[in-house]
Design a protein around this nucleic acid. Structure first.
Lengths: 346, 346
DNA sequence: TTGTATGCGTTATCAA
DNA sequence: TTGATAACGCATACAA
């Protein structure tokens, strides 16, 4: 049975009162050194363990934080969660995870559930389909710290941790330009999401900075999967003035693009260079490894956790912090025959 | 502020007592229909939400379960967690995740923490290094349901969910035999872990069933990474009677093997067939896709969750259940030029 | 059917 | 320095 030892048991054993035991256990200054050590010793002897529910009821804090992502088994998100867990565990917090399946309805419900469970904070990446912000306002109203990572919404009072997607798009495109490409296409996913919008803008800016005219026909809106990449290439290669490179906002689409190019007999990277985005694990494992932009998701998770912790330190004032991490270009074979050799060593 | 509405507030507003409110809200039969609806309505109107801490303190149940894995950002584990979450969320449970980093010390500490947090159950995959079982005994003694998945320890009273690794090893090896291979090597990882031991035994049994003599020199103990696979091939191909196939208990080692074979000019699969294990995402994305054994991790997670739920239904009796899922061979290019075409469509 | 009283395990306030 | 008591919010045994 769950015969847990309470401070009353200790008190009884020592012929003192529970209040004294509590004080001894909590480093309360108003207690003699003698009783303190005595209490601590017998507590250990009796295998005392604090009842967290009672503490939670008393203090109003659960020492749990909720993390909400579309799917946990996506490398990007599970890596972020890893970062969060590693940062928060040593501070005594437990991480509760929930998935939205990219469904706003589920997201709203989940957030409400987390609030009901009285988590001390919510860290999340918003679903693609989310437009309404009611549920986030509710979180703020309940005075629970809210931190967005990667996929954010601009809400007053909500801290955010992102990578600089604009810069990501910029360095990816600039790299292709540096490699001698002049007709650079771009595969984007969903311009309603800021991350894709900014990558697109970085792409345009890089073209502009290097005197390459922007061409609407080079922009393909796709999904983030292999099939989408194949279709994109099919469409692009039919153009009169077909591109000689593509910057894909998705690694999966980049992979599909490469497969389709190979099928069409177009040599990658010599005749056509490809750059993806996200540094999915598979990009480095391919025989033709894929150049991509790393988002350091573990670091992003740690940062989100740190922002939360900061907020907890100052429960009175509303801190609103915007952290932007720098993306890193990882050059591999799909865009650079020269560096191919160096990048093979995994 | 966190001015939460309590049942006392509702009681006051309705000029009744908190007990009545509580009864109305909990579908207690001892109450009139009239007051019930009245209470429920005003509760909704006042935005009442149950305080979970009070409930937890009263009932001793947190509605949280702890899930412990070595690393959450491994595809296999994050997929299991996904399954657990999807099964448990609808039942009102929240999933707390913790990582052990394959460190027994951390594992012990984590389990203790979870116990302190008074989770209603612990679902876990044990760390590679774990020998001592003290911390598991503690869980049982506290009467908390414990379910092991994939990497298990035999402990009385602990339910387990695994895949049939023996069968996995068997069908992988049999497939290679069916493809005409006769000198089949095996790369294993850590025979101290049951999963690898059973895969190895399945391999031996398959050889035996088909009249192929077992050769100690074909067995390589490696790590589960690319480098290990390369080293394994280097060693194997130096043998007088070099193998013509390898069944690797790790997809990563299988990939390393393929890379090294390619470097050595050995044609895969025509001259040498390779089969991995786990169905890591990258295995299907390679140009030379890798034949592997799928463990249906999401299903495994769901099953572990279901076993936990069953246990919760019967808190009085100790249920001990052993569930074994069937692995599925996924034939791809690395072992079968014939089926290569069909398997390309991802 | 409803009200009263108590306990779940802690911590904090006040008094001694 | 320690003890007594109340409070956190809820559920329930018992009384009415």
């Amino acid at each position: 049975m769950k015969e847990k030892v309470t401070i009353y048991d200790i008190a009884k054993a020592l012929n003192i009162t529970a209040a004294t035991v509590s004080r001894a256990l909590n480093n309360n200054p108003k207690i003699s050194e003698a009783t303190r050590t005595l209490v601590i010793e017998t507590a250990k002897k009796m295998n005392y363990e604090q009842n967290r529910f009672a503490l939670a009821l008393k203090s109003g804090k659960s020492n749990n934080v909720g993390v909400v992502v579309p799917f946990i088994n996506r490398n990007f998100f599970s890596s972020i969660i890893r970062g969060i867990e590693e940062e928060l565990y040593p501070k005594g917090y437990h991480v509760i995870i929930c998935q939205t399946h990219e469904d706003t309805k589920k997201e709203e419900e989940t957030v409400q559930n987390l609030l009901n469970a009285q988590v001390d904070g919510i860290l999340m990446s918003v679903s693609k389909t989310t437009q309404q912000l009611r549920h986030f306002k509710k979180v703020l109203k309940s005075n629970t710290p809210l931190v967005f990572f990667d996929r954010i919404k601009e809400i007053d009072g909500v801290s955010t941790v992102t990578i600089d997607d604009f810069q990501g798009g910029y360095i990816a495109t600039k790299h292709l330009i540096d490699m001698g490409c002049t007709r650079i296409a771009h595969a984007t996913v969903d311009l309603a999401l800021d991350i894709y919008k900014y990558r697109f803008e970085g792409y345009k800016e890089a073209l502009n900075d290097h005197g390459i005219p922007f061409k609407e026909e080079y922009i393909i809106k796709t999904k983030s999967d292999i099939d989408a990449g194949e279709k994109a290439i099919k469409k692009l290669m039919k153009l009169k003035n077909a591109p000689d490179a593509i910057f894909s906002a998705s690694d999966f689409a980049a992979l599909g693009a490469i497969q389709e190019l190979t099928k069409l007999g177009v040599k990658v990277p010599n005749e056509f260079a490809v750059v993806g985005f996200s540094n999915e694990p598979f990009t480095q494992f391919m025989e033709l490894s894929i150049t991509t932009v790393d988002q350091s998701p573990v670091e992003m998770g740690k940062m989100a956790a740190r922002v939360f912790l900061e907020q907890m330190k100052e429960p009175t004032l509303k801190i609103m912090k915007k952290v932007e991490l720098s993306p890193e270009l990882i050059v591999r074979k799909s865009s650079s025959s020269l560096t191919a050799k160096q990048q093979t060593n995994i």
